[in-house]
């Protein structure tokens, strides 16, 4: 395989397209990353979907419905981008359901109050944006282009989530408490969305060489922290970290070490919602089997002329 062509393109910062030669490792790395990203969008519909039927106003219900639809749409773009690498959506779903493919660990945490809908938009979508801005320049063309569309919508979600938090923080004492409680629970998991510290990160080295990844986990995490601490102060909430301090010399906020044991425990299956999320996905997929079969049978009847029009 003319891998030299591939290396040349990478060196020149040209994007790799589906028909270009590419090393198998590159292809597998991308399939793993893009499908994981697609699954995250789709699984993420569950915790937010958990609050659609209890959204407290027509406006907030519509915003949430539209947001979750966007996330499903992101899942679609990303499945399509992964398909250009030679894997089908069915295979990807199979990998998700058998635990071979992962989704973002953040969705193994529960959405317990309406403030969680604010916290998810503000922090989870906020962290996703920091990651994804970098991915708009990732070396694989279809992935980079999907990210450009996705990033625009994610910033909407982030603002809408922040608005919910701001409103609740300024609301009744109970609302304020709910907002602070949601921040307390989502803060550390959101910081862990950037992945383990650079020193421990398994997949990072090659991803840098291939220009799939362009900034380190810790650098991205720091960006997110700096931005979020300030936003938190503005709405009168507190970052749940007694060790938080501003370092005048570096111009960055410093935080306490994160509990990575918890991260690994959750990511390996023992979080509050791991089982629930996958069971939900499997159940719905199984219930939809007859519908997909009907659609396929009907399409086949049209194709073979058994039915008209």
């Amino acid at each position: 395989m003319p891998v030299d062509l591939f290396t040349e393109k990478i060196d020149q910062n040209k994007s790799i397209e589906p028909r270009d030669p590419m090393p198998d490792d590159y292809r597998y790395h991308l399939i793993r990353q893009i499908s994981q990203h697609a699954h995250s969008e789709v699984i993420g519909m569950q915790p937010e979907g958990n609050w659609i039927t209890r959204a407290p106003s027509l406006r907030s219900k519509m915003i949430l419905l539209a947001k979750i639809q966007d996330e499903g749409g992101h899942g679609l773009y990303l499945y399509s981008a992964a398909e250009t690498l030679g894997i089908s959506r069915e295979e990807m779903i199979e990998q998700l359901q058998t635990g071979k493919a992962r989704y973002s660990n953040i969705f193994n945490y529960p959405a317990l109050t309406w403030a969680d809908i604010g916290a998810i938009g503000w922090l989870v979508d906020g962290a996703a944006i920091v990651n994804q801005v970098m991915l708009q320049r990732t070396s694989y063309g279809p992935y980079a282009r999907a990210m450009v569309r996705i990033c625009k919508e994610e910033s909407f979600h982030q603002r809408q989530g922040y608005e919910i938090m701001a409103k609740m923080a300024a609301g009744t004492p109970e609302q304020h408490e709910m907002a602070q409680d949601a921040l307390n629970r989502w803060w550390a998991p959101a910081l862990m969305m950037f992945g383990p510290p650079d020193a421990e990160s398994l997949h990072s080295k090659k991803a840098f060489q291939w220009k799939i990844k362009r900034e380190s986990n810790d650098a991205l995490r720091q960006k997110f922290i700096d931005k979020t601490v300030q936003q938190t102060e503005v709405i009168g909430l507190k970052i749940p970290d007694p060790g938080l301090r501003f370092n005048e010399e570096t111009g960055h906020y410093e935080t306490s070490p994160l509990n990575w044991d918890e991260f690994y425990r959750v990511i390996n299956g023992n979080g509050p919602c791991n089982r629930q999320r996958i069971e939900h996905h499997k159940k719905v997929h199984a219930e939809g089997q007859w519908v997909r079969e009907a659609a396929a049978a009907y399409a086949e009847k049209l194709r073979t002329g058994v039915l008209e029009q």
Binding site: V42, M45, G49, I52, I68, Q69, G72, H280, E287
Partner: peptide
């Protein structure tokens, strides 16, 4: 229809149903 969010028989139809809900 909003109750069906994340419960469609496949992703495109999930979105179509929640779109009608919206």
């Amino acid at each position: 229809l909003a109750e069906l969010c994340s419960r469609g028989p496949f992703l495109e139809e999930d979105l179509a149903l929640t779109n009608i809900a919206l």
